Computed example of a mutant assay.
Amino acid sequence: MSDDHTHVQEFFTARAADWDSRFPDDGPAYAAAVAALGLRAGDRVLDAGCGTGRALPPLRAAVGASGTVIGADLTPAMLHAAARAGRDGDGLLLLADVAALPLRAEVLDAVFAAGLVAHLPRPADTLRELARVVRPGRVLALFHPVGRAALAARQGRRLTDDDLRAEPSLRPLLAASGWRMTSYTDEDTRFLALAVRTR
């Protein structure tokens, strides 16, 4: 495992047990972001970097009993927290690096990724891997329950122009990785970038 992966695992392992209690009011924001994916009954969707699985219940509701929901995360403690919360009933929990998924090409209809981009050591590589497993014309949602400015304030840092999630940075990054951005929202109450898998 790389040093980058070890650092990410350590960060989230230390926070897994109380993660949900630290952000108890995020449920409606997750549900609204999942709704923006436009999923249909029977679709196959991945929650990339699923953490404690807060997106899994709305994803399951969107794809129905006939759909497939997978939650993949690098940190065992986060997946254990998801299982303790009963979210393993909403989707398959998979211990995996989202930059090297054990999935066939073009097998998914959508990828949902909450708070993922900021933790990627090689964002372009990971976004290319997510593109590999999604069928052309289907969708990716990069989500955070608060916007960039609100998150920076929460973390006690200034928002800078080189922020990966700033639209002028994110749009070309997605384009170079097999995606075309279709919408971009950065408000205090949510960050949501939607993109379609190019052919």
Rank of each mutant, 00 (worst) to 15 (best):
G71R: 00
H144F: 11
R40S: 15
G156K: 01
G115D: 02
A16L: 08
V69P: 00
G49H: 02
M181P: 05
R180A: 15
Q155L: 15
D26S: 15
V63C: 07
T75F: 02
L142W: 03
R190P: 08
H119C: 06
T75Y: 08
A118M: 07
M181R: 09
G64I: 01
H80S: 15
R138G: 06
E106M: 08
L93V: 06
P172M: 04
S21L: 14
L59Y: 02
A110F: 00
L56D: 07
H144S: 14
A96N: 08
H5E: 13
S2R: 08
G178D: 06
F191L: 11
A175Q: 09
R128E: 09
A175Y: 05
A195F: 02
A105C: 07
L140E: 06
A48Q: 00
A113T: 03
G137C: 06
F112T: 02
D161H: 12
R171G: 10
R157Y: 09
E10C: 13
S21W: 13
A105W: 02
L151N: 15
L94F: 05
T189G: 15
A77Y: 05
G64W: 10
F143H: 04
L159E: 02
A31T: 12
G147C: 10
L140S: 02
G178S: 12
V69K: 04
L140C: 05
D186I: 05
D186S: 10
